[in-house]
């Protein structure tokens, strides 16, 4: 039986203690930035102080939120598409090893396409709607997850597979019972990398042409010489990414309970 401390208050305390150094570092950076703007005499139209950015973000909260929603939609939908593709292609590669040599070069080429060049083209071809944004997010986040999954399948203990076969399991059973669960830790490592790219990719896609979204908001703010608003939107995107990252971490814990247990015998 499990000890109930897995969700007790000591864990909350530990999580806070773990987060403290990061919070202190960010706090120190913001303080240094504020002090630099105050004492260098630099115009706030060139480099606004963090307090100005925060005040503007608050004043513009309705507009920022209205523009964050389509960005989040593009991120979520693009990521979901990417996830499905990564799973499907990783399985194809796992079941037909020859496909690895067929598909990997193509994916690597896609991964190395400069976003600066490809995003405006995709918008040009597919228009200002949600579709091209979803596609770009998927394009950017797909490869790390695919590589993680393929490597994860390969990490399966051979003896577990031999055991399953001795029990009469076929290829699909071996995949579902052993290879897929073995790949989960790798998959989540790839997922954590991908999710940090996802919001940036969505913003970039919007930057190349959109009706609404943080990307277009940033573009407009830049064109009106409002660095404070640009940075407000950047702040929102950073918070979004952090939230998505935390969400992935939470899902990871739920999906792999065996990785988060006390290692010594219980009860």
């Amino acid at each position: 039986m499990f000890s109930s401390s897995a969700f007790g208050p000591s864990r909350l305390g530990r999580a806070l203690a773990l987060g403290l150094p990061a919070l202190l570092t960010i706090g120190a950076l913001v303080l240094a930035w504020e002090a630099y703007v105050r004492f260098s005499g630099l115009s706030q139209t060139v480099l606004p102080a963090p307090t100005t950015v925060a005040a503007q973000a608050f004043a513009q909260r309705a507009a920022l939120w209205a523009n964050a929603v389509p960005t989040l939609q593009a991120t979520g939908a693009g990521f979901a598409l990417s996830l499905c593709c990564a799973l499907a292609f990783s399985m194809i590669i796992d079941f037909v090893p020859m496909m690895r040599r067929v598909l990997f070069p193509v994916f690597i080429v896609f991964q190395t396409l400069p976003l600066v060049a490809i995003a405006p083209l995709i918008v040009l071809w597919f228009g200002f709607g949600l579709g091209p944004k979803i596609g770009l997010v998927a394009l950017v986040t797909f490869f790390p997850m695919l590589v993680a999954l393929v490597q994860g399948y390969g990490s399966t203990e051979r003896e577990i597979e031999a055991l399953l076969r001795s029990m009469g399991a076929g290829r699909l059973r071996v995949f579902l019972l052993a290879r897929l669960p073995s790949a989960l830790p790798y998959f989540f490592a790839g997922l954590r990398i991908s999710i940090t790219y996802a919001v940036v990719a969505a913003i970039f896609a919007e930057y190349s042409g959109a009706a609404r979204g943080l990307g277009i908001y940033i573009l407009n703010a830049k064109n009106s010489f409002r660095p404070d608003l640009v940075l407000s939107a950047v702040m929102v995107s950073a918070v979004l990414t952090l939230c998505l990252f935390a969400l992935v971490a939470a899902i990871e814990r739920l999906a792999m309970p065996w990785r988060h247990i006390h290692k010594e015998p219980t009860s």
Binding site: E157, E159, I160, A162, L163, S166, M167, A178, P181
Partner: peptide, 17 residues
Amino acid sequence: RRSAFAYMPQRDALMAW
């Protein structure tokens, strides 16, 4: 032969998950 043997591999090959 496919159903003749109960196999216990080296190490324990327990599934961690």
